[in-house]
Design a protein around this nucleic acid. Structure first.
Length: 870
RNA sequence: GGACCCAUAGCUCAGUUGGCUAGAGCGUACGAUUCACAUUCGUAAGGUCGCAGGUUCGAGCCCUGCUGGGUCCACCA
């Protein structure tokens, strides 16, 4: 006997994972690169259809996994393992993210601790410093993925800075440049003065905050503003053309306070007559709306805030102040001059850096932009054609809606840790015929020469989402030349929170580069919340570390626990309890196997299992039916990404049906061949969710061969359906006997009273089983002279051999039972008395109702007889 | 301002084209104990499915409105 009495995951998990990895069972069976073994000049994979591909959203290469990764892996790996068992060549491609901005922030903080700043180094130096930093930290995350059981193909791990990735990014960028989809523009961008980089719109966090709205007199016009310090950048005052208050002022000029400038009053829809004073100052260099007003009226842009957040291009007095200091000074000076006419407290939303919380400045900068209009349009067409199926479904509409309003995408970042933008600016002023910017891949050079003209490289790097948008393409080694059976991916699984940032961009880029959608289905998971439904955060102290749970309860328990009760796209609570429930299931399965192995040993049936088992009794037919049902439901659930349902049905089948009824019956019958076949079926069916315990058991069973990872999904079991249906009688009889025994006065009743039956071949044939399941001392035939307490069964005549006093004490319970069955009967009768129901409801339902009425009536009359006897 | 999601047992959640007496896990109460498992076994209690209408023979599910909670997008001088 190899099985200890309880399952200890820590004893086995790392060893089992190492064995899997060593044996290469996670590698896809169909090659992942073009092959031509038969030498016919054609890729052998041309006809490989049975593939399943899924990529991992790359976790931060130098970070640790958090609970969201735990859910990601549990979900993706369950899919991968399921389809592998289903016979597909499954390829789960792992990844690691250089996490441009995130890592940079961590690195820069460390750098500052050592008393240095980024400005002491050039980009190449910084890049190699961060590279070393990441290399040092790297590896934890990959070990943690293994601990979670991720069955990925490790040889194919893709790092977002791998050469094939940067190659692909450059190729795409070049194509876009040539197609005119890339442009350089001076636009307002979201700029973090602390990190000194710009962000895409999607990375900005808006928060509602209290603020002040000041009224400032520009001569006789009063403007309202929340940012008086930007006054020095004002180039106009706008009023609404329909606003009668200001109609006669349009075209005139006003004096800009604290300066010696005159600025025009212009008419623009942007000014809302209802808001504030209805007149608004226009600062095109520091406000998005004003920028657009400026465009419309061809106004200058005066930048008054520098990239370090200090005032520039302002009178000496204000120069080099921070925006905050300057604001105070301006307010003070305006007050002194009597120009401050009002002050109102308001709530407005303010843009913050999602990393450090600093207020973002809209900043006028030259940046690279992607003209997204065409890309979005193509994506919308394919989405509307239903080429990608979404789980949850509604995300398709949400995504289309987003794409319809998408603005041009700023892909420049001013941080060194990332893929360099392969663009060079003309340095020779004289070469007027040459283009200002040229594309070139030699980003390691600060300066290049082309046709005798000098060019200097752009120092910016790509937004990480630009490279991430190629993820399905780079992970599967897609190329234009070769057919690839793994592209498009079968599914893209990721967090619902990055639908826009990532999924949308992968779709646009996939279509642009390959002409095909990058994946056929999208499954989005929600946030994992704490047990009270609160978002996990360090500040709240409610963060759950998945690795702690894995250590404590095992990887399988964690996976089962986190998938349980979870559905697509929903933010849902998670607690240790569900992991404990998972741990218990693993232990149950372990003991089930221990028990089965015991019988197999006893019967000397240690040869590989066959499908030629015989079913010799109702319980055996019944469990075959139950397992088939279970397999069908798991298959259906997996098809629809209903993991929670799949896990639920497995729990019930394994625990409530296989262990509690079938194995109990096998204590009598001992059908070793059937036990082997059925145990294999449940082990394989559970394997996608609990890979370790099922494999450990598989390795310990005497008759199984190879790894369960690469086993075949179970075939449907053969059984006699009539016999299977008859087993329900046993279950009903046993349940009723148990309920009644518990309800009788006194304790330990099961040991006291015999069960007697009259004229019942099912009971007669299963006396021993019923005795074992109810734990009564004996099950005895009555031969026509009833006594004791009759069980509340419509179709069976059974009695508990209890003394009259006990029967009398049971009288109240019996009366209540008659009443409750009576209420059920009334409800059924009412339904049948409704002619519309009888006419319009489907015939089988009407018949069912009638059958039930008959049954309840029989039951009531049985119970009433009993009551009369008392 | 636009859109989306959620509301079912004490807690966390299932409930697929409308169909029987609305389920699970955890928790609670009571009982069991050599013979695979106390990480066990058995039994029970606990729900007018957020509110108000409507459609239907029949509504947790479909429709309308409302209330409460959450998310995203846009805007906010």
């Amino acid at each position: 006997m190899k099985f200890a009495s309880s399952y200890e995951p820590n004893q086995y998990e790392s060893e089992i994972y190492a064995a899997w990895e060593m044996a290469g069972v996670f590698n896809p069976t169909v090659p992942t690169v073009p092959t031509d073994d038969d030498g016919d000049g054609e890729d052998d994979r041309k006809h490989a259809k049975n593939t399943y591909s899924i990529v991992m959203p790359p976790p931060n290469a130098n970070g640790n996994l958090h609970i969201g990764h735990g859910l990601t892996v549990a979900t993706e790996d369950s899919l991968t393992r399921y389809y592998r068992l289903k016979g597909k060549s499954s390829w789960y491609i792992p990844g690691a993210d250089h996490a441009g901005f995130e890592t940079w922030v961590v690195y820069e903080k460390n750098l500052e601790k050592t008393g240095h700043t980024r400005f002491e180094y050039d980009r190449n130096e910084l890049y190699s410093k961060v590279w070393d930093f990441v290399a040092e930290q790297r590896g934890n995350m990959e070990l943690q993925l293994r601990a979670l059981g991720a069955s990925c193909s490790w040889d194919d791990l893709t790092f977002t800075l791998d050469e094939n990735v940067t190659d692909r990014i450059y190729t795409t960028f070049e194509k876009m440049w040539n197609d005119g989809l890339i442009y350089r523009g001076e636009k307002l961008v979201n700029y973090c003065p602390k990190h000194r980089t710009a962000f895409a719109d999607i990375e900005v966090e808006h928060k509602d905050e209290p603020g002040t709205l000041w009224d400032i007199a520009y001569d006789d016009i009063i403007v309202s503003t929340t940012r008086p310090e930007t006054l020095f950048g004002d180039v106009a005052v706008a009023v609404n053309p329909e606003d009668p208050k200001y109609k006669d002022k349009i075209g005139k000029t006003v004096h800009l306070p604290l300066t010696d400038r005159e600025i025009p009053i212009i008419a623009d829809e942007h000014a809302d007559p209802e808001y504030g004073t209805g007149a608004v100052k226009i600062t095109p260099a520091h406000d998005y709306d004003d920028y657009e007003v400026g465009e419309r009226h061809n106004l200058d842009r005066i930048q008054v805030i520098s990239e370090s957040g200090k005032m520039i291009n302002v009178p000496e007095k204000y120069y080099d102040l921070t925006t905050e200091e300057c604001r105070k000074q301006v307010i003070k000076d305006l007050k002194e001059q009597g120009l401050l006419k009002g002050e109102h407290k308001i709530t407005h939303s303010v843009a913050h850096c999602y990393k450090c919380g600093t207020v973002l400045e809209p900043m006028l900068k030259d940046q690279w932009f992607i003209d997204v209009e065409k890309l979005a349009k193509v994506a919308i067409q394919h989405l509307e054609a239903g080429e990608i199926k979404f789980y949850p479904e509604n995300k398709q509409k949400v995504l289309i809606n987003y794409l319809k309003g998408l603005k041009d995408w700023n892909i420049s970042r001013q941080i060194p840790w990332g893929i360099a933008i392969p663009m060079f600016k003309k340095a020779d002023e004289d070469a007027t015929d040459e283009p200002d910017w040229i594309y070139d891949r030699r980003t390691n050079l600060k300066e290049i020469e082309k046709a005798g003209v000098r060019y200097v490289r752009d120092e910016d790097t790509f937004d990480t989402w630009f490279s991430s948008s190629h993820w399905p393409i780079v992970c599967t080694n897609w190329t234009k030349e070769n057919y690839n059976p793994y592209y498009p991916l079968n599914v893209m699984e990721t967090g619902a929170d990055i639908l826009f940032a990532w999924v949308a961009r992968m779709i646009m880029m996939g279509l642009y580069v390959t002409g095909e959608v990058p994946f056929k289905e999208v499954y989005l998971h929600g946030l994992v919340l704490d047990e009270h439904g609160q978002k996990m955060s360090k500040s709240k102290g409610n963060v759950i570390n998945p690795m702690d749970l894995v250590t404590k309860y095992g990887s399988d328990a964690f996976r089962l626990g986190i998938l349980r009760g979870r559905s697509a796209g929903m933010n849902q609570a998670f607690s240790e309890n569900s992991v404990i429930a998972g741990r218990n299931l693993c232990n149950k399965l372990w003991n089930i196997s221990r028990f089965v192995q015991g019988i197999v040993d006893e019967c000397n049936e240690n040869e590989p299992s066959t499908t030629t088992y015989q079913t010799d009794n109702m319980g055996e037919d019944w469990i075959c039916q139950e397992i088939n049902d279970c397999l069908n439901q798991v298959e259906k659930s997996m098809q629809e990404y209903r993991f929670s349902e799949a896990v639920e049905v497995l729990y019930q089948t394994i625990w409530d049906k296989y262990a509690d009824w079938f194995l109990e019956s096998q204590k009598i019958y001992k059908n070793a061949e059937l036990l082997k076949t059925t145990l294999e079926a449940i082990l394989i069916a559970l394997h996608p969710f609990a890979p370790f315990v099922t494999e450990v058991i598989w390795q310990n069973l005497s008759w199984t061969e190879g790894f369960i990872v690469t086993a075949k999904w179970p075939a449907k079991l053969k059984y006699d359906p009539i016999s299977a249906a008859n087993f329900q009688n046993i279950r009903i009889i046993v349940s009723e006997a148990r309920t009644t025994l518990q309800a009788l006065p006194g304790t330990n009743n099961a040991k006291k009273y015999n069960l007697m039956y009259n004229n019942d071949s099912i009971v007669a044939d299963n006396q021993l089983l019923i005795k074992n399941l109810t734990k009564v001392p004996a099950v005895i035939a009555l031969n026509g002279s009833p006594k004791g307490l009759k069980l509340a069964l419509a179709n069976h005549e059974l009695y508990l051999d209890v003394p009259e006093s006990v029967v009398n004490a049971y009288k109240d319970t019996l009366t209540e039972k008659i009443l409750s069955v009576g209420r059920e009967l009334d409800a059924l009768n009412a339904r049948m008395e409704n002619p519309n129901y009888v006419e319009k409801a489907p015939a089988h339902l009407v018949k069912e109702t009638q059958d039930q009425i008959n049954e309840k009536q029989a039951l009531i009359s049985h119970l009433k007889q009993q009551l009369e006897v008392i």
